[in-house]
């Protein structure tokens, strides 16, 4: 059987949904951020697969930029968690309910 880009696409899709479930289910803020990174990575895989499908380089290029943005975003997110930790003294998402009615 010949390798075809859609196989890569399905791997990316599956990884995306694993990450989505993880965001919903886990309660540790850091793990939630890790699952977000997982989702971004899955998006990257899909881009690369598309690039292979259309025999183009646009997908690869986008994947590079997404990676950069993901790095910046995770840095800022972790900074937020550190700042939050100072108030909450914990990283449980349950404790982060200051907006409650």
């Amino acid at each position: 059987m010949q390798f075809h880009p859609w196989m890569l696409l399905s791997v990316g899709t599956a990884m995306f949904f694993i990450g989505l479930i993880g965001v919903v289910v886990r309660r540790n803020l850091l793990v939630i951020l890790m699952c977000i990174e997982l989702m971004l990575n899955a998006g990257n895989i899909c881009f690369v697969a598309f690039s292979r499908m259309h025999q183009n380089l646009n997908g690869d290029l986008v994947a590079v930029f997404v990676m950069t943005v993901a790095a910046a975003e995770s840095a800022v997110g972790l900074g937020l968690i550190i700042a939050l930790y100072r108030t909450l003294k914990t990283v449980e998402s349950e404790k982060l309910q200051l907006l409650r009615d």
């Binding site: 390798f3 880009p5 890569l8 791997v11 990257n44 895989i45 690369v48 697969a49 690039s51 292979r52 690869d60 994947a63 590079v64 990676m67």
Partner: peptide
């Protein structure tokens, strides 16, 4: 590894 497999070495 998967990226390398499909030929996107830079990525």
């Amino acid at each position: 590894g998967l990226y390398a497999l499909v030929g996107a070495h830079f990525v």
